[in-house]
Structures are given as structure tokens and as C-alpha cells.
Amino acid sequence: MNFYLNLFLIFLKVGAFTLGGGYAMIPVIQREVVHNHKLIDADEFLDIIAVSQSLPGAIAVNSAVFIGYKLAGIIGSLVTLLGIVLPSLVVIITVAIFYNEIKGLKVVQAFFQGVRPAIVALIAATVVKLTYSIPKKYINFFIITLSFVGIALLDIHPIVIIIACALIGLIFSRKEDSDELP
């Protein structure tokens, strides 16, 4: 029981005190789980993050569930999931109530009028940084263009585009693989 409570508190702390989204949480989870509590070793942690990143969903949630599952099965994963999600739920509901009260104020409207262009700029900068992280190949340029045009001009559902591009990636990797054969 003490073990589960401890696991819950570790992830509750990570969920409550990390600002800036999932990627900011990874080093904090690492410090708690690998260094402070020594529940998982460093190599295993890297594998867990790699898999959590590749599965859909929030990376912090994926890695919390994975760590909980690895340490204590389904119950462990429920405990870590609850720990990481609970602070968000409580904080955001409080903020949402507050937002409804104050959103009519002139100063709040001016604040968000200033914030909106900044959010767009942050997203645009993230796009630029993401393009650095993928190999410079024609196929990648083609997929980026295809998915952009699919949404912006053709109004295709994002899920359809993701599945189609996954298939393109699959076909191309097999082609490259067979090209390498003697």
C-alpha cells in the first residue's frame, strides 16, 4: 500500500509542479524515478521515453502509464496515471471558472489580444525546429507539403492524413529496405 501511495505522490508532484507541457516533464520524471527513488535504471528510462514518444497521446501521460505498468502492472499504471492527471484537472477547472469571471474585463481582453500572436509565433518557431529534426529527403518534403495542402486547401480530416502518411512511410521503408539487398 505504501508503495502505491509513494508512486502516486511522485507523479502527483511531477504533474503539479511542471510548467510548459509534456516535454518539460520528462527530465523531472527522470530525476524522481531514476535518481531520487531508484525505481528504474537510466537505460530503461531512455527506452521508456522513446516508446512513449512514438505512441499517440501526451508523452508525459504515456511515460507515467508505462512506468507504473512496468513497476506494478495495471494497478501501478492506474496509480501513476491518476497522479499525473489529477493536478491538471484541479488546476484547470479552477482556472476555467476564474477565466469565465474575468474574460469580459478590458484589460484581460487586451492581455489575450497580445498573447494570441505570440502563440502563433511559438507554434511557427516549433515547426521550424521540428523540420531540423527530420532527415532532409525529398520524401519528407513531399509528405510535409501533402499534409499541409490536405488540411489547408482540401479540408481533409487530420486523422485520414496521418494514416495515409503512415502508409506512405511504410511503403517507402520497405522499398528502401529491398533496395539495399544485393
Binding site: V120, T126, I134, F148, G150, I151, A152, A164, F172, S173
Partner: peptide
Amino acid sequence: VYIKGIFAGIRPAVIGLISAACLSMFQISV
């Protein structure tokens, strides 16, 4: 190879999707 291939396709797709969302947010925000 299969798993790598799937993600090799999804990663650039996500960049295109976020760019498209960014463009429509730009029209509202700026």
C-alpha cells in the same frame, strides 16, 4: 523496419498538419 517506416511517414505529416493549423490561427490572431 515496419515500425520505423510508419513513424518516418508520420513525423513529417505532423509538421505539415501543425503548419496548416498555424496558418489558420495566424489569420485569426494577427
